[in-house]
């Protein structure tokens, strides 16, 4: 009995989305087979990794990751340059300082920061609001205009504010990150709503809502596997947008990345443990089909990039 390699016949393909302007653009997507199955499909672009930068100092971050960026994190511009030097494919600027519970920075201030960061690096830029539904609409409108021409990924558009955020991205020729809450149908629904308002689905990057290793990662993992199957095997055009996973945000608030050695001796040393937590979470998201990751620790990013090279 001779083995006939059982290949899937895929009818769909992930859209290719280009980010950035000038010489250092990055394209993600384009796959026409399930993740890394090179024997039955092609993967024109490797998954990209963005390092995260914030508009305020990372006072809330756990020691391990705070230390890793401490030389640069006092200023968003320095921090972004540092990310580029560390080999990040992109910089992800999170405007957390605009949140009313944080510094409540104004939309104008945020726009100024975004423009400065955009001018400081030549790799593509991801710009994220603070996650405050109402405030993000003002902030992202101002920001999108301030970085017009830079072909950024702007987000996150959610069910409650997608119209305004998408309009801002559309008016200024940016790509859009659309986040839904850990559900295949909600992810599709948001892409449909965006298409109905005239936002081209080929310009959307889908965020299925990430979670950290040990804290619900299996939900994200299976939602992503199902999205990818719908996109490729059932040729569902509303599922064929590339996927982004915002993992640093989730990883660097769980106990495994915070608890000191003395508190949890059975967990091993904090520095190694915390780094591994972000790196292994990244491996999970990549295996499930992530086209793009947002990470916080440069060391964990380096490991994720090493794994991507090993997988391609």
């Amino acid at each position: 009995m001779a083995l006939v390699v059982p290949k899937e016949s895929y009818s769909g393909k992930i859209y290719e989305v280009q980010l950035g302007s000038g010489a250092k653009t990055v394209t993600i997507g384009g796959a026409n087979a399930l993740p890394f199955l090179g024997f039955e499909g092609t993967f024109p672009h490797k998954p990209a990794v963005a390092l995260e930068v914030m508009d305020i100092a990372p006072e809330d971050w756990p020691e391990t990751v705070k230390k890793a960026v401490s030389g640069a994190s006092a200023s968003p511009v320095q921090w972004a340059k540092f990310c580029q030097e560390q080999g990040a494919d992109m910089v992800a600027l999170r405007l957390i300082g605009t949140h009313p519970d944080q510094k409540n920075r104004s939309a104008e201030d945020a726009a100024k920061t975004a423009a400065e960061v955009a001018a400081a690096v030549d790799i593509p830029l991801v710009i994220l609001g603070s996650g405050h539904v109402e405030k993000d609409t003002q902030v992202l409108q101002a920001v999108a205009a301030a970085v017009r021409g830079k072909n950024c990924a702007i987000g996150k558009a959610v069910e409650e504010n997608y119209k305004t955020v998408a309009a801002a991205a559309m008016a200024n020729d940016h790509k859009l990150i659309a986040m839904s809450q850990l559900d295949v149908n909600l992810a599709k629904q948001l892409n449909i709503l965006l298409s109905q308002m005239g936002f081209a689905k080929e310009r959307i990057i889908m965020d299925p809502m990430s979670s950290a290793l040990g804290y619900g990662m299996e939900y994200t993992y299976s939602v992503m596997e199902r999205i990818r199957q719908a996109a490729l095997l059932q040729n569902d055009p509303m599922m064929q947008t590339p996927i982004i996973c915002d993992i640093g945000l989730n990883v660097w608030k769980v106990k495994e990345t915070i608890a000191p050695d003395a508190e949890m001796p059975e967990w091993g040393g904090l520095a190694d443990r915390a780094l591994a937590w972000e790196a292994i979470t990244a491996s999970g998201m990549l295996t499930a089909g992530a086209d793009m990751l947002i990470m916080r620790h440069p060391g964990a990013m380096a490991k994720a990039k090493e794994l991507i090279a090993d997988l391609m």
Binding site: L213, W267, G268, G269, R273, A276, W277, I280
Partner: peptide, 10 residues
């Protein structure tokens, strides 16, 4: 220990 914690959790 740190490594097994991550792998066993995964």
């Amino acid at each position: 220990k740190w490594k097994m914690l991550a792998l066993l959790s995964l």
